[in-house]
Design a protein around this nucleic acid. Structure first.
Length: 420
DNA sequence: TCTGGGGTCCTAGGACCC
DNA sequence: TCTGGGGTCCTAGGACCC
């Protein structure tokens, strides 16, 4: 059996831990630039605020219902996530961290009769140790555990847990096909066109038909719904195959100098992420884009990819490549609203990787320099040492975060103060 | 005009996830 | 006026190999 543990309204719940007065009140957390709603409390959902809804569309609602609004505080959510995961490790030898607020627990070998009590214990422990509410769905496969978790969340009279054992046809009949893990918007529309409305209907479709129209991915989902495990466990966190740093700017950037500084920051940030997983990149792509939502403005969007002579993890080379790519695609006269740097062709070089005789770069020198770079920045703060191409203040000033809560758990100066 | 039978690697596009 | 930021996998098609 496998359990899926999922924090309810994760970002909102993190904020409420340090602001208990907000329990029972409508609360939302916004995306970067305070642009869209990305997390909603139950009270906010009841006010029909949508996931991903732009804030300007709900200004009146916020005022009327005195909805509490937060910018997203990634330092806080990342730390709270780690606390939840460490707590969950107590309960199963095998834990797969699936996302910032979700984990699969391998409970195979546990007597079926003990499962309900164990699920309740998990829920109570996370609540007591970390302070956030979770739901637990337990079932024979991952897709069914996801489904069980959803049922646990929906049942407001229940205790936040749901155990699915055979026969589970009624649960499948009660689940809209669009709510099945792995069935997205396009597939849901397609399937409904053929009369497949529920998860149960989907299990009645012929395998060959599912394979033809939804590829092998869809077939795996069908079999998992029937109780046959088809999705592998990934207990140790795999290295990323792509690494990106991208932003939408509050105020568009117009000049090449502004874009150059910003893309240098992005490239440097990508370098940090790259070195943290001990990888090197063979490709670097820069893309820039005007505001495609402003239909009345002139539009421009292009990207350029640089291939390195040998894979690299040097910030100096990444920044230089980003500048080179920008020179290829920059056109004046446009207001650039979004931009990004993406690394691809990632590999884990063995020590003493082959060097090119004609390589103009002194790679051993870079390999010695980068750990020093990272150590200084880890100790004294990001961008304490940086390339001259980067901006002095970092790219954070280009985004808006008016409603940011303190870094309660990761910065001494911002610890919560309680007056007794 | 006729013209084999395998492979691999890369990229783009389309679907999905949080 | 104001609209996020990351990721994954699969398939098809083209270029290239012997």
């Amino acid at each position: 059996m496998v359990a899926l543990v999922d924090v309810n309204n994760f970002y909102v719940s993190c904020e409420r831990v340090f602001c208990p007065a907000l329990r029972g009140r409508p609360v939302v957390v916004l995306s970067n630039n305070d642009g869209c709603v990305v997390s909603r409390s139950d009270e906010a959902k009841a006010l029909r605020i949508g996931m991903g809804q732009p804030v300007f569309e709900i200004r009146e609602l916020i005022r009327q219902h005195r909805i509490h609004v937060f910018s997203s505080n990634y330092a806080l959510y990342g730390d709270m996530s780690a606390r939840v995961m460490n707590t969950l490790r107590q309960f199963a030898p095998e834990l797969e961290v699936y996302s910032v607020d979700e984990a699969f627990l391998n409970l195979s070998g546990m007597p079926a009769a003990d499962l309900p009590a164990r699920a309740r214990e998990i829920r109570q422990t996370v609540h007591q140790w970390v302070g956030v509410p979770v739901c637990v769905g337990t079932a024979p496969t991952k897709v069914l555990a996801k489904l069980a978790n959803r049922l646990a969340k929906k049942d407001h009279q229940g205790n936040g847990t749901c155990l699915l054992t055979a026969p589970w046809h009624d649960a499948l009949r009660a689940t809209d096909i669009a709510d099945v893990w792995g069935i997205g918007r396009q597939y849901a529309v397609f399937l409904k066109k053929y009369g497949i409305q529920t998860a149960y209907d989907f299990t009645q479709a012929p395998n060959a038909w599912v394979h033809k129209h939804l590829t092998v991915v869809g077939l795996r989902i069908k079999k998992e719904l029937e109780g046959e495990p088809c999705i592998e466990w990934e207990t140790d966190i795999p290295n990323k195959k792509n690494i990106a740093t991208t932003r939408t700017f509050r105020t568009p950037l117009n000049t090449r100098a502004e874009l150059g500084e910003t893309l240098a920051d992005f490239a440097a940030r990508c370098g940090e992420k790259l070195r943290r997983q001990h990888s090197s990149a063979a490709l670097l792509t820069v893309w820039i884009e005007t505001n495609r939502l402003a239909k009345d403005q002139p539009q421009y969007s292009r990207s350029f990819t640089v291939s390195f002579t040998a894979p690299t993890d040097s910030t100096l080379l990444l920044v230089k490549a980003a500048q080179f790519a920008l020179a290829k695609i920059y056109r004046s006269g446009y207001a650039y609203k979004r931009a990004g740097v993406q690394l691809g062709g990632l590999s884990q070089p063995e020590a003493g990787a082959q060097l090119s005789l004609f390589d103009p770069v002194n790679r051993p020198a870079h390999q010695q320099l980068m750990p020093v770079f990272d150590a200084i920045n880890a100790r004294f703060g990001r961008n304490t040492v940086r390339t001259a191409a980067q901006s002095a203040g970092g790219s954070a000033q280009l985004t808006q975060q008016h409603r940011l809560s303190p870094a309660y758990t990761t910065r001494w100066a911002e610890l919560l103060t309680i007056r007794l």
